[in-house]
Amino acid sequence: MNLIAHEVNENQRSIEEICICCGSFQIHTQHPLFHGGICTPCTENFLETFFLYDEDGFPAFCTICCSGKTLLMCDDPTCNRCYCLECLDVLVSPGTAEKIKAMNTWLCFMCVPLSSNGLLKRKKRWRAKLKCFYDQESNHLEIYQPLSPWERKPINVLSLFDNITTEMKNLGFLGSSLGDGRLIYLDDVTNVLRTDVKGWGPFDFIFGSTPPVGNSYEHPPAWYFYQYHRILQYGIPLESSQRPFFWMFVDNLVLEKEDRETASRFFKTEAVTIHREHAETVQNAVILWSNIPSVKR
């Protein structure tokens, strides 16, 4: 990334030909907020992290690269966007981060009238470009408005074939100071009707999975996928609903290739393979389908 300024100023390379997040020349598209390119890995990272907020309700990553370990925050209470030290020193000018640290009040590059700061040039109509960026790149997954900590509530979960109560509690989705969420676990859904699901709901998250490798199961592996998809249709909110809703189906490597391709068609999204870095069992990966934008992470 340190070579970006050299490539633009010395080699006369257009900044649209360089990923302003990492310095790569393998450009996938253009950055939605600032003039400059963005490569495929950084595009995926941007999609997954730009709207992530920390426990205090502030953006968790750099506005430019959506990464960064040490961040400086805009002092405008209506903004609070963050910028990492490397992006500031590379794209604006060396020493910019230290200058900002010394300021009592700092308004960021999205707030000040000046649109150009070194190599960092804010785009006009960036809000429309940001929406277009997500519409084109996020596989049409719904992006919901992030909630501040005091607006968050525990969620209602429907878990099929695998009781994930412990996992959901550990992640803080069921038990919290705001009250207890609710999880309904169903192992046999053969006789479950639409009226049953409607009566138990509404649900915020519907989860399902095939049995783990090595476990005995009563039905063929594909049965779990078809039954999950059937129940999912019962629990999905109407298109006119503004209530956030998420789903996930996990295959523990028991579905055949043809069944996985069928699942992708039914779910209208491609499967993602998640590797477990410290798996203690032979099975060190799972395949999943979900509408959660950051699922690849």
Score class of each variant (00 low, 15 high):
192 V>F: 01
221 P>Q: 13
250 V>E: 07
241 S>G: 09
261 E>A: 14
204 D>E: 11
222 A>Y: 06
244 P>I: 04
188 D>R: 02
254 V>D: 06
214 G>C: 04
218 E>G: 10
208 G>H: 12
249 F>M: 00
188 D>N: 14
238 L>Y: 08
194 R>V: 09
185 Y>I: 02
203 F>C: 07
261 E>F: 06
246 F>H: 11
260 R>P: 02
267 F>A: 14
238 L>V: 04
197 V>Q: 02
211 P>A: 10
258 E>K: 12
244 P>C: 02
201 G>D: 08
254 V>P: 04
268 K>E: 15
260 R>E: 12
229 H>W: 15
186 L>D: 01
234 Y>S: 03
212 P>G: 08
270 E>V: 08
220 P>S: 14
245 F>C: 03
236 I>F: 08
239 E>D: 10
224 Y>S: 02
188 D>S: 06
189 V>Q: 07
217 Y>G: 00
194 R>Q: 14
253 L>E: 15
264 S>C: 10
203 F>A: 05
262 T>I: 08
239 E>T: 11
255 L>S: 11
214 G>T: 08
227 Q>C: 03
231 I>V: 15
188 D>A: 06
227 Q>W: 04
188 D>P: 01
231 I>P: 02
186 L>H: 07
195 T>L: 04
213 V>R: 15
207 F>N: 08
229 H>A: 15
240 S>C: 09
225 F>W: 15
212 P>N: 09
187 D>G: 05
215 N>A: 09
196 D>F: 02
197 V>F: 02
228 Y>P: 01
183 L>V: 14
256 E>C: 03
218 E>N: 14
202 P>K: 13
207 F>I: 02
237 P>T: 09
194 R>P: 08
261 E>Q: 15
245 F>T: 03
244 P>S: 04
193 L>K: 13
257 K>D: 10
192 V>C: 05
195 T>Y: 09
264 S>W: 07
243 R>V: 07
219 H>I: 00
235 G>N: 05
233 Q>I: 01
260 R>F: 00
193 L>H: 09
202 P>F: 10
230 R>V: 09
243 R>G: 00
249 F>W: 01
248 M>R: 11
270 E>K: 14
221 P>W: 13
193 L>G: 00
205 F>S: 05
197 V>G: 04
187 D>F: 01
212 P>Q: 11
265 R>Y: 08
269 T>V: 12
204 D>R: 06
218 E>W: 03
230 R>Y: 02
187 D>H: 03
183 L>Q: 13
269 T>W: 00
268 K>F: 11
260 R>N: 04
191 N>G: 06
200 W>C: 04
274 I>F: 10
243 R>Q: 09
198 K>P: 02
244 P>H: 04
241 S>K: 12
267 F>V: 07
231 I>E: 02
254 V>K: 05
263 A>T: 11
259 D>W: 00
188 D>M: 01
252 N>I: 03
231 I>G: 02
198 K>H: 13
243 R>M: 03
246 F>T: 03
221 P>V: 12
242 Q>M: 07
222 A>M: 06
263 A>P: 10
229 H>C: 12
